[in-house]
Design a protein around this nucleic acid. Structure first.
Length: 426
RNA sequence: GGAGAGGUGGCUGAGUGGUCGAAAGCGGCGGUUUGCUAAACCGUUAUACUGGUUAAUUCCGGUAUCAAGGGUUCGAAUCCCUUCCUCUCCGCCA
């Protein structure tokens, strides 16, 4: 959520910046500015009335004993004010709600270092790491590799749950477990505290991180009241972990890591990546979250991105890191790096991690602050990044480490976790 | 699921209709004392919004906030209703 004060101070400037994402947001900024001006007028009058009422009522107690007639007069006077007071109160509520609804649907301001652009074609490659493998045979895609080995079974998954679900069997299931432990151990060494959070959260938690109100159709909702949802990423519980608190400055940055299942409806992705592990309704992801003060957050973003990259380089997978342009960034983010892993079957890099600095956008929504040097609380900056998507990593290993005889060589870093260095069919 | 207790400031904990934004203690901050440390003593100590003022989040006002929402009243932390949450005991259960 943007600070309404920023909009009130210079709506034109904010419009200019936000329009780099999408020009249609400009009108919403204008509306917010107009509503806010109106709101303040009403607020002034409402507070004047309340002030008068408080002043009058203060003396009634004493007057009642000493001068009952005067007390009666004052009581009547206050009663007369009630209509206007009630009217102002309701209209205040209405304006507040309208403004908040607008603000909740406006995305974060892109950071000045983010390139302007409409879509992913205007993203900027920052670096390319690792050698793309050379095959002296035609590499199979990961579902073919996995199904031949009997470790991936999409047919059974479909029977159980429909399309876009996966089932891992035997060495496949074990390899996923090995990957998770490898990732969690690495991040723990880098100072992240491991968390095992709930995968079900309340509605306001999703407002905090920005999934609601705008992206309700992407979320799995549970039956019943109060409304609860399955998380689409561990970013949600991790970032909300301290919501409403004032954190001591010296505790920052807070660093959390969790591996959770993630549930996504993928309703806008008809026909995209319909086979395999790339885009499913349920997948495991290791997620990193940092809570930083506002001075250091962009440094933290570099560190977090490096921490995520280390997972891939540790596995010997080739990847590149891309700085997203204004038009391709997520709703809450001010600056995002995507990490893309090489997928031989597609002959291109595919997203496997996304690391974002959300500045104070989420912190304001969840009222998460820290004490500053002068003792005043201020909103923190929140960051999140995949460290990394487990299913996609599994897919990348199957593709990049396949051999001509159909077996898969397990990356050396995983061998201690997996127990052997090769997956062969039974 | 059944029975009971309770939710007050950074924390502990008073306060059952009228100078209560809220006693007291702890903690924090500033200071005095002091070879050093400790102790003692004095002072100070919420947040948001808002009007004016300022170099300033400077200063002076106002409003709101005692789990959340609604109601009663001239006036609510205090009374009533609803919801949420926490704790204890019993039952059930991986």
């Amino acid at each position: 959520m943007l600070d309404i004060k920023l909009i009130a101070a210079d709506a034109e400037e904010i419009k200019k910046i936000i329009s780099q994402r999408d020009p249609s947001y400009g009108a919403m900024i204008d509306q917010a500015a107009v509503l806010n001006a109106e709101y303040k007028k009403i607020l002034a009058r409402a507070e004047e009335l309340r002030s008068k009422r408080n002043e009058l009522s203060k003396h009634v107690g004493v007057l009642r004993r000493d001068k009952p007639a005067e007390a009666e007069k004052i009581m009547a006077e206050v009663t007369d004010m009630k209509n206007e007071m009630a009217e102002k109160e309701t209209s205040l509520e209405e304006f507040k709600k309208k403004i908040e609804n607008l603000l909740l649907n406006i995305p974060n301001l892109p950071h000045t270092t983010v390139p302007a652009g409409k879509n992913e074609t205007e993203n900027k490659e920052v670096r390319r790491v690792g050698a793309v493998p050379n095959f002296n045979f035609k590499p199979l895609d990961h579902h073919a590799v996995g199904e031949k080995l009997g470790i991936l079974d999409f047919e059974t998954a479909a029977t159980l749950s429909g399309s876009r679900f996966s089932l891992l069997r035997g060495d496949g299931a074990k390899l996923e477990r090995a990957l998770i432990n490898y990732m969690l151990d690495m991040h723990a060494k880098n100072g992240y505290t491991e968390i095992a959070p709930p995968a079900v959260v309340n509605e306001n938690i999703l407002v905090g991180t920005g999934q609601l109100p705008k992206f309700r159709e992407d979320m799995y909702a549970l039956e019943g009241e109060p409304k609860q949802f399955l998380i689409s990423t561990a970013e949600i519980p991790l970032t909300n972990l301290n919501r409403g608190k004032i954190l001591p400055a010296e505790s920052l940055p807070l660093k959390y890591v969790a591996c959770t299942p993630c549930f996504r409806k993928e309703s806008g992705a008809y026909g995209k990546d319909t086979r395999g592990l790339i885009r499913n309704h349920q997948f495991d992801k290791v997620e990193l979250v940092m809570i930083s003060d506002r001075q250091k957050s962009f440094e933290c973003l570099e560190i977090m991105t490096a921490n995520a990259e280390a997972v891939l380089s540790g596995l010997g997978l080739a990847y590149r890191t891309v700085l997203l342009c204004t038009g391709d960034m997520g709703f809450s983010s001010a600056k995002t790096y995507d990490i893309e892993v090489w997928m031989p079957s597609e002959n291109k890099y595919r997203e496997i991690s996304s690391c974002s600095d959300c500045t104070d956008f989420q912190a304001r929504r969840m009222n998460l602050r820290c004490k500053t040097e002068n003792g005043k609380p201020e909103f923190v900056h929140t960051l999140n990044g995949s460290g990394v998507a487990v299913g996609r990593t599994l897919a990348a290993i199957l593709e990049n480490c396949q051999t001509s005889d159909g077996s898969v060589l397990v990356p050396p870093a995983l061998v201690p976790y997996f127990g052997k260095d090769k997956i062969t069919s039974k």
